[in-house]
């Protein structure tokens, strides 16, 4: 089984978000980048398939050279090789089309991604990729098994879960549940040493044109100070008469 794991390179969840160049660019100054948390769950599931079912695992990122440490980290966790598509990922559709070019040439059975990225939170790429390459697709996946070419998966729905059956080839958009938090791996020294020698292939754009463009960023208006009360009567009164939410 050949698995491709899509890795997004995102600011750490504690990062301060600021913009530069007249609010047109994300300010990366002092920001620590990590593997997107959702992708990390999917990557960890891929490692399970590697160890238990002999799968090979390739990781891919659409991004500029600055994302390579994030790919190396995925290699240190245990992926076999990495691909970087040398494109600035400005639009979800653009990323999906670049990934589709990789998937079409790669003979992958399973593409694992995260259900969203922690930067733009678009929730676009996995579904677009699946449609572009005509693979089956399970979104918001909290569990999956592969048996031959049959796939059984569980996805989160409003207020519960749905079990589905489907088949390879497939795109999975994972989240916590596909593996648990305790299953996540921190790369060890040996993994980090080995990762340096693993192939990281850089490929150029397949010539895709973006369909959306960020004109500017803005931050939410500063919030007024909290109103403190010392009894529940005042609280109920404010929620009813001022905020009008009860």
């Amino acid at each position: 089984m050949k698995i491709l794991v899509c890795i997004s390179h995102v600011p750490d969840t504690t990062s301060k978000i600021n913009f530069t160049d007249n609010d047109t660019k994300f300010d990366t100054n002092g920001v620590q980048f990590v593997i997107n948390p959702y992708d990390e769950f999917s990557l960890t599931r891929a490692m399970w398939f590697k160890e238990k079912q002999g799968a090979t695992v390739t990781v891919v990122n659409v991004g500029e050279a600055s994302t390579e440490p994030t790919l190396r980290k995925a290699l240190a966790i245990g992926a076999d090789d990495a691909i970087r598509v040398n494109v600035n990922p400005t639009d979800g559709f653009l990323v999906a089309k670049e990934l589709a070019a990789i998937v079409k040439n790669g003979g992958y059975d399973v593409v694992l991604a995260g259900k969203e990225s922690a930067d733009y939170n678009g929730q676009m790429v996995p579904g677009m990729l699946a449609s572009l390459v005509d693979f089956n697709f399970v979104n918001g996946c909290v569990g999956m098994e592969v048996d031959g070419t049959a796939v059984s998966a569980t996805r989160e729905i409003d207020g519960g879960e749905e079990k589905v059956s489907t088949s390879l080839p497939i795109v999975i958009a994972g989240q916590k549940g596909i593996v648990e938090e305790k299953d996540l791996r921190i790369p060890n020294m040996r993994g980090i040493m080995m990762a340096r020698k693993k192939p990281l292939n850089v490929v150029e754009s397949s010539g895709v044109i973006a369909s959306t463009e960020t004109q500017s960023f803005e931050k939410p208006a500063p919030k007024g100070a909290v109103k403190l009360v010392d009894n529940v009567d005042d609280l109920i009164n404010l929620l009813h008469n001022e905020a009008k939410v009860i």
Partner: peptide, 22 residues
């Protein structure tokens, strides 16, 4: 909704439309 987020990217591909979520 979970369903909306599931279908919208697929609709965008079918229509070859730019997609803005959120």
């Amino acid at each position: 909704s979970v369903d909306g987020l599931y279908v919208a990217p697929m609709v965008a591909v079918a229509m070859d439309a730019g997609y803005a979520s959120n």
